[in-house]
Design a protein around this nucleic acid. Sequence first.
DNA 1: TTGGTAATAGTAATTAGTACTAATATTAAT
DNA 2: ATTAATATTAGTACTAATTACTATTACCAA
Lengths: 132, 132
Amino acid sequence: MATLKYSRQRESIKNFLAGRKDHPTAETVYTCIREEQPRISLGTVYRNLALLTELGEIKKISTGDGPDHFDGDISQHHHFICRSCHQVSDLDMKSIDSIMDTAKEHFSGEIEGYVTNFYGLCENCTKKNKNT
Amino acid sequence: MATLKYSRQRESIKNFLAGRKDHPTAETVYTCIREEQPRISLGTVYRNLALLTELGEIKKISTGDGPDHFDGDISQHHHFICRSCHQVSDLDMKSIDSIMDTAKEHFSGEIEGYVTNFYGLCENCTKKNKNT
DNA sequence: TTGGTAATAGTAATTAGTACTAATATTAAT
DNA sequence: ATTAATATTAGTACTAATTACTATTACCAA
C-alpha cells in the first residue's frame, strides 16, 4: 500500500539536485524551483526531500549548525563544512569504509552506516577572514 | 575584554556532564540540574553549553535528527547514534586521524577537524525492534 | 563597599521543519 | 474517455529546539 505516484514537483526537485554540484538547503531548492513552478509550496519541498532521502535517491547532510543541506550525488564521498560561510563542498578522496569494520568489532549493536564530515575554513574564507 | 566570570550554574553543568557516561541533551541537563538548583533557567543551560563547547571544555554532538547532545569527555573518540531510540553511545575504537591528512591533500582550504558518527540499531533496539 | 561588568531568570522571538485539510493530480479499472 | 480510488499538493497552522532581550543579580578588582 501507499504506492508511489508521480509528481511534477518531486521530479523537479530531484532534477534540480542532480544538476547541482553544490549542496542546497530546502530553502534554496524552494526558491530556485519556484522560478519554474511559482505555486510549489515549501512544505512540498520538505516532504519530497525527506521522501527522496528515505528512498535513497538523494542524501541529507546535517552540518551541526543551521539548516540541513541536500546532495543529489549518492556515491560514497565526504563533505567539508566551512565554519565561517557554512558552505558545504565535496571532498573527493578515497572512502574509508574499513572504519566500518573496525567499528563493528567494537560495538554490539547493528552498525548500518557512518558519516564523516570535515570542518574548517574554506579557501575563500581563509583569504577574507583571518579572524579566530 | 569580556573576561570570564565564575558562575555556579556553569560549574554545575560542567560537573554534571563530567559525571555522566551517556550524552545528555540540553533538556536533560536542565531537568537534572534543576533538582539541585531549582531556579536555573533553560536559557542559561543553552548559553553555557554553547560557551563550554566554544571553550573546548565539552563537545556538542549533532545527530542529524532531534536535539543536540553533549559530551563531557573531550578525548578523541567516535559516537554511535541509534536510529530507533536516538540514544548516543561511545565507540571505543582507535581513531583514524590519518584521514585528516588524506583530506588535507584533497582540499584547498584549512581543515581543522572532522567528526565521524556511526548509525544503526543499538543492542536494545535490535532485540525489541525488528521492523524496517 | 563600591563600581563595573558578566551572568542570570524569565520571557519573547526566531528558525527549521512537520502536521493538517480541503482541493487537485495521477493512475488503474471500467 | 469516464470514473473511482487514493496519493499529492498548496496553504496554513503548529511544534521543537534554540536564541535574543532585558531588568535584576552575582562576581571580583580596586
